[in-house]
Design a protein around this nucleic acid. Sequence first.
DNA 1: CGACGTGTTGAGTGTGATCAACATCTGTGG
DNA 2: CCACAGATGTTGATCACACTCAACACGTCG
Lengths: 251, 251
Amino acid sequence: MTSTAPSLGKLYPCEICPLRPLNTFRDFQPDELAFISRFKTGELTVDRGTTVLVEGSHSAHLYTVLSGWGFRYKLMSDGRRQILNYVVPGDLIGLQGSLTGEMQHSVEALSTLMLCVFERDQLFTLYRNHPGLAYDLTWLAAREEQMLDENLLSVGRRSALERAAYLLAFLHQRAQTVHLYANGRATIPITQQHVADTLGLSIVHTNKTLRKLINRNAIRWLDRGCEVLDEAALLGIAGWEGLGEQRRPLM
Amino acid sequence: MTSTAPSLGKLYPCEICPLRPLNTFRDFQPDELAFISRFKTGELTVDRGTTVLVEGSHSAHLYTVLSGWGFRYKLMSDGRRQILNYVVPGDLIGLQGSLTGEMQHSVEALSTLMLCVFERDQLFTLYRNHPGLAYDLTWLAAREEQMLDENLLSVGRRSALERAAYLLAFLHQRAQTVHLYANGRATIPITQQHVADTLGLSIVHTNKTLRKLINRNAIRWLDRGCEVLDEAALLGIAGWEGLGEQRRPLM
DNA sequence: CGACGTGTTGAGTGTGATCAACATCTGTGG
DNA sequence: CCACAGATGTTGATCACACTCAACACGTCG
């Protein structure tokens, strides 16, 4: 399942970017916008299940998510999988590989995923001419690190129920900040296998743990999807205060 | 235990930095060196047990480790602690807090720790005038993310024995790349409580797990310290290939 | 139709947690 | 100098959370 049909044109030139107007994102200087517009060389739309970036590869591109869900993960040689984080619109993917040369993780689409495509070899031009954008890139990397810190705390020190509650509250909040389910049903398009591989649990125990959250009316489970009904309950169970949401840059 | 006696002078001006000559670190342009030298406002030496940066605070400084060991961690309100990563010479700490405003984790010294002190509010000058250094900062943030990814895989998907083997091999390799125990005994200055809080295990089970590694002659445990005897054995147990060590920047 | 992905539930097992007791060693105050 | 508290490491006994195995229901898709 690797339908990588690159739709070449730009349906969404940066000047009419559907994300930028959201007040989650910081304002942009006109010259910055002009640069990004040139930096962006195209768009890419992929189906659910497509692997966008592969661990061990040397990608010539980086991407910003325009719409849809995805996840970053690592595999062990015997097949064990750990999901590291999820990506939602506005997130930059492939920066790590662009800087250090080789991807250390893979990225897969959870839903139809629209991506803005950037050329890796133009990255240094950005650093040379646009210190504000360079700062933004570091900012995005630092924020990814913050999310990973919290995930690590979760997997290392929270119980199964706390972990599940944390994860679903986390994904729910991230979806809301980028209006991911503004239109239509408010569901997170994951399977219980994804939850298990994120939390470091077996799929059977994940199922039983999610059932407890369902019985408390905190969530609802649909076919390959989760709907958060009571975010406050999840935050309480997890002992988590939520994303201290700050305005963030958008590449 | 908060002996924060700031030794003001510069014992080690950047021009005679004891770390930079190591070939782990990338070469520097003269103008970059000059900038860093001005950017560095002093040195700070703290004792073992000192908390260098506190979660929730707004630090005006960032630091580069000149010598010694430390660790980054998060606490939950009921006292559970998760160690996120360790810091060794050459590592930059406090960047996250400098960018996003508030520290989301704490940093504590594992041994006597010597730090170079930088002023946060000069950070943007760096971005404006030194794109190479700006690139380096993002590079360092991306590398921290890579280490966290691997730690998360470990805690989420490796068994207790595999986790312990991974951690000690990891710390051993990091120590070697910066010649941390070039002089004197080659020990990692941690307690079993630190290991437990890194791996997400109880201290009792950590003790029993480390005993297995000791019985296999892979490590030796001293008072508040670990000595790696058979790195290959640890790598084998963990199913880990080691740090693909690349030359890295030094601030 | 059968194969496959996904979700569900029960039974038995085991890894790792908790509880408890003890051995050292250090530092501190009397 | 000793008594004591606290940090660290060790080991055994018991418990429970989470894993494995197994079977089944349901949908989609070739």
